[in-house]
Write a protein that binds this DNA or RNA. Sequence first.
DNA 1: AGAATGGGTGAACATGCGTTCACCGAAACT
DNA 2: AGTTTCGGTGAACGCATGTTCACCCATTCT
Lengths: 218, 218
Amino acid sequence: MSEQAPTRVEKKERTRRAILDAALDLCEDSSLVALSLRQVAKEVGIVPTAFYRHFDSIEDLGLALVDESFVALRAMLRAIRRNDDTAPTFTAIVDRSVDTLEQHVHGHHGQFRFIARERTAGPPAVKARIRHEIELCERELATDIARLPGTDHWSAEDLQVLSSLIVTAMVGTAEAMADAGGRPDAEKRVSDAARTQLRMVLIGALNWRSGPADSTQE
Amino acid sequence: MSEQAPTRVEKKERTRRAILDAALDLCEDSSLVALSLRQVAKEVGIVPTAFYRHFDSIEDLGLALVDESFVALRAMLRAIRRNDDTAPTFTAIVDRSVDTLEQHVHGHHGQFRFIARERTAGPPAVKARIRHEIELCERELATDIARLPGTDHWSAEDLQVLSSLIVTAMVGTAEAMADAGGRPDAEKRVSDAARTQLRMVLIGALNWRSGPADSTQE
DNA sequence: AGAATGGGTGAACATGCGTTCACCGAAACT
DNA sequence: AGTTTCGGTGAACGCATGTTCACCCATTCT
């Protein structure tokens, strides 16, 4: 069926994929800003010039990688959100969320390491795009949290600050998980820690306006 | 007094400083892995070869920058710890800690951006050193927390996980603060958020073993 | 069947890179 | 005073980089 039919657009798309994969792999131990066109071309098996048929520059390639990574990440977030509907317990929400994160990072640690790296080290345009995407995640999380019971009286600022804290913690978790490099014991340790951290944060948040004074020691 | 006495070791030290400063400045918009010896030499005003009189390689330079940054950071942590002795309230501890962090990042944002960047993007040896230093910070924080009242019955794991969470949040805060680029309003917003986040985490931690079940909704 | 399209080629360029080496000259020793 | 030390010099090397250009030829369109 799929035999003998490598149409032109298919071949182009295949080469494009190969470039994206090679780039993700090659900048693994450095950064986009230290990645060279010729390196990528050699890895893919094309001549340097052919690269320009697909991307304007390395930075352009980087933006494509960011978009691709976040498409996958949004799919993960949708999965978590779907699970939430059927699991109204906070503990269950935390467990399922961390489980989903663990699975996803396990299957895409290249992409996660990429965004964790280029978020701080990439070319300005790439950094800006990643920052923007993460802010979108924070905002979405904020509206999710606002739908949970017991958060009605919260200010928008507190909601945003809490989302930011959770996202920061989860980015850190994803980073640590990707660094675990697929070793199941290491991944388990990271996800256990993440569960504890998320629970602590949620407990803190739920006792936030309702009675933070009780918890200070004076 | 200090006139007419540029002794040889002084001159060497001065050049070394100039190299370190130039490197910190030059890799600001990329990374150590994309920094070239010749760039640094040109910026400093010496010939490329002279670089080798001071460092074996760019990576060696990077390690020196890491050490320097963490010397400063440890000084800050000591300052925070000193303040804590005179301020036994949790709220006060949080306020003073964030204040100190704000001041320090304001005065050293170059160094903070450097470690935030190279932590994920630097050469392997640099990444490893930074990771190690951060782990030391987490451990020290854990012992500090263990000295606070109400944490006696905590497990070592939970302590470590809590420290890790706080350090992650503070690294994120430092990153955001350094990105604020010295604008006072932006810095204020970041430090306000950091205070809220720290309080939330502490409230969560204090209610952790004592009664986490009260806070779940089932 | 014939023309147009477009991904891939290969040579060529100017530039920048890390590293080597012999050398200089002033400060630091004896 | 004579010698050693050593930070800085400048030429030279072999190599990798981004980008240009004219060209090729199988697929696609007419």
